[in-house]
Write a protein that binds this DNA or RNA. Structure first.
Length: 477
RNA sequence: GGCGACGUAGCCAAGUGGUAAGGCAGUGGUCUGCAAAACCAUUAUUCACCGGUUCAAAUCCGGUCGUCGCCUCCA
């Protein structure tokens, strides 16, 4: 059992996690917009959400997690228009890509991935209620949230609305707000949208929802008025999260989430990775270069989730090498025959478990946790090399690694099952090697390779693995 | 201009008051029929800079510099 603490943006401190329900944890993560292919920034967010979910699960909590997909907004509408496709077909393609990327990254499925377009009814209800309560107003067929009515605005991000430069990034001429700081809840349908059938009928005319109300509506719909954790990346803090909070709290009078977690940005060449900066590296780019989702996952995992992460292929290479060291270790552990017991193993196993989960529980300090794993590997390696682990100790080692891996999700602990004839061949090759019949040994090795088994020799005997195409290694669970 | 984050070795990265984890690369060694590796050892008198508090500071306080992000629909 793990004591979980994490940094709550709302209080700007690390706090101990106390779920609302004893055995259940609920969290909502802001997901991608379905108008572009998954890139490294999306991948990091997926992995961070997965880390959170797995940590909560390890803590014995049943996790209910939702990550929304924005499939109804300016970008998706403009994208579909440009592609000459119906909105649904356009976004559907990207939704599938995101799901595939998540799988590739070894991300456990969230409870749900709701689409904004399927919850417009909820959004309209919320807007109506906010109008009734006086937090919103109608103007020329659009509905805006009146920020002046929500006194606690800005608590999360610390912005002072009087000092903000309005209109710097948005053309205010497109809106008819009472105050430029107000934000759109429901936007009057344009003529073009009307023609394409992208509109929803309401008492106030045809509309479509704005971005902020989508998240409030979906999170409340699935998780209730107050849930445990809201997760997203830092650059969404203002205005998106402030607006989400304003909508939800004006509506219910209760906090939307008890803990607000924000992950760091993903940078490329010192700048945020985004289409605007023209420095996007997609998941597909990385796979095409022969890297695996598993290698990406590891690269994302070892950097603290709140820190900015500079993406580079050099870094990815370094992650690959590091992973190879772990793989070598687990291969030996699985393949080499058990022998005599070693006196230090019990303590080493206990230390790994303690240190790994203490680091994890301290605001997801994965660098510290992985450091503990390497300390362990370094100590066990010589023992393994000397062939002095007995069967029971090997099981203990495997068991602690399974625990660690329930969060990491990258260690290969499934012994590659050997068909009897493969086992036979390996033995045959060993006999040939003992007789120094190198020609026979090499031909058996070649035969094994044809059957998809790569054999390496070590001082303690042969170690094998399923030979896999580089870059296409599957993730262990 | 306002708000926020970050700055630790060649690179990546932990460490938030007790004397610098871990990984990659490098170097040296061990093992090895071949192959591919692997394994071990080693690498920061110092934590962007300046000042202060303290017996003790990468860690706390004040200031400076640098990089990045957000400021009302890129997400």
């Amino acid at each position: 059992m793990l004591r979980l603490r994490f940094y709550n943006t709302m209080s700007r401190k690390k706090e101990e996690f106390r779920p609302i329900h004893k055995r259940r944890a609920t969290f909502y993560a802001c997901g991608p917009t379905a108008y572009e292919s998954p890139n490294m920034a999306h991948c990091r967010r997926f992995v961070v959400a997965d880390l959170l979910a797995r940590s909560l699960e390890y803590n014995g909590l049943a996790v209910e997690s939702y990550m929304n997909i924005t499939d109804l907004d300016d970008n998706t509408i403009a994208g579909a228009d440009k592609a000459g496709l119906p909105l649904r077909d356009f976004t559907g393609k990207y939704v599938n890509e995101f799901m595939a990327a998540a799988r590739e990254l070894g991300v456990k499925k969230a409870t749900g991935y709701p689409l904004a377009s399927e919850h417009v009814g909820d959004m309209i209800d919320i807007a109506r209620e906010l109008l009734d309560k006086g937090y919103a107003y109608v103007k020329h067929g659009s509905i805006y949230f009146d920020i002046s009515k929500f006194k606690r605005y800005g608590r999360l991000s610390g912005v002072d609305l009087s000092k903000i430069r309005t209109g710097k990034t948005v053309d205010l001429d497109d809106y008819e707000k009472d105050n430029p700081r107000d934000f759109t809840l429901l936007k009057r349908t344009t003529l073009d949208e009307l023609k394409k059938g992208i509109f929803y009928e309401t008492d106030w005319g045809n509309i479509r929802p704005g971005w902020h109300i989508e998240c409030s509506a979906m999170s409340i719909h699935y998780l209730g008025e107050t849930f445990d954790i809201h997760l997203a990346s830092q650059n969404l803090m203002f205005p998106h999260h402030e607006n989400e909070i304003a909508i939800a709290e004006a509506l219910t009078g209760k906090p939307l989430a008890n803990y607000w977690l924000h992950s760091g940005l993903l940078l490329r060449d010192g700048r945020k990775m985004s289409a605007d900066n023209g420095n996007v590296v997609t998941m597909q780019d990385v796979l095409d270069r022969g890297y695996s989702g598993r290698e990406l996952r590891f690269m994302f995992l070892v950097v603290h989730y709140r820190k900015p992460l500079h993406f580079s292929f050099k870094r990815l290479n370094s992650a690959r090498r590091t992973l190879m060291r772990i793989d070598e270790f687990s291969r030996k552990l699985l393949c080499l025959p058990p022998d005599l017991p070693h006196p230090d193993v019990a303590l080493l196993v206990a230390t790994l478990e303690k240190k790994f989960f203490a680091a994890l529980g301290d605001d997801f300090n994965m660098s510290g946790a992985v450091g503990a794993l390497f300390d362990f590997i370094k100590k066990i390696n010589p023992i393994l090399q000397a062939g002095s682990l007995d069967r029971r100790q090997k099981n203990d080692v495997l068991e602690v690694l399974r625990k660690v891996n329930s969060v990491l999700g990258i260690i290969r602990l499934e012994r590659c099952p050997l068909a009897p004839e493969i086992d036979q061949l390996i033995r045959q090759r060993e006999r040939a090697r003992q007789l120094k019949d190198w020609t026979a040994a090499d031909s058996v090795r070649a035969e094994l390779l044809k059957k998809g088994i790569a054999v390496c020799d070590t001082a303690c005997g042969p170690v094998w693995e399923r030979s896999i195409e580089p870059g296409r290694q599957g993730n262990e669970r």
